[in-house]
Amino acid sequence: MLRDVTFGQYYNATSFVHKMDSRVKILLSVVYMVGVFFVHSYVGFAWLTCFLMIAIGASQVPLKSIFKSLRGILFLLLFSAVLNVFFVKEGTLLVEWWIFKIHDQGLIDAGKLMLRLTLLVCGASLLTLTTTPVDLTHAIERLLKPLSWIGIPVHIAALIMSLTLSFIPSIIEETDRIIRAQKARSADFDTGGLIKRAKAFVPILIPLIISSIRRAEELAFAMNSRCYEGSKKHTQMKVMRMGWRDLVGSLITVVFFAAIFTLYAFADNAWLGANLPWLLF
């Protein structure tokens, strides 16, 4: 049962976005996320949605998989929307009932917040859906390389991350095995109150921790045997190359976000406010 859990949410395909350099993808995602926070008009949101749709289209990831990632933040979405609806005290009063007052600005803010969070999460999940955890680790290591010049052990951090990734399947398997072994010894995980159930997990956790420590020791032996010496000079086999896809992707992103930042810069422009109010809202 636990074995079916796959780590990360990589969607296997060979699309335009999948083939882009993962470093570029991370950087573009950062630009996108910053952009999401700069947008304040509905035109801007439409513009962002348009960009996201193009990106999703180019990634061949089905919309369903993208929206799946929203389930995790559903509660957060609703909670923050409700807060906005009831506690924003600007604009015209629409409804007043007992202690609740709903203003039109509250509704607008709630709508924008929900849109913003949705766009943010969809964008982030597009990155993880089209990039394997291994590639992400490699990309983060290369991108953070400048930090190693000031003595931050980026390589070690990246190695820890990649080791964690490669050991997750083994540890899940181990957990599964321990659960079955304890069940065979008539351990009971499914009945009783919350505390009793929590206590029932102790016989799983302790063997799991012990075996993980043993694993770590064996791994350390294996790594040392293969000439690993921490921060010593090392090279990398994996070469990351940027191609035409990265150029095209970056160009499209730059065009879209240049528009958003321009819109943001002219938010207080009197002429635009007078002649094209819908653009600024």
Partner: peptide, 13 residues
């Protein structure tokens, strides 16, 4: 050197 447990020697996925 190669050790006993194949799972505990793999450093990459």
């Amino acid at each position: 050197m190669v050790f006993q447990n194949p799972d505990n020697q793999m450093v990459a996925s």
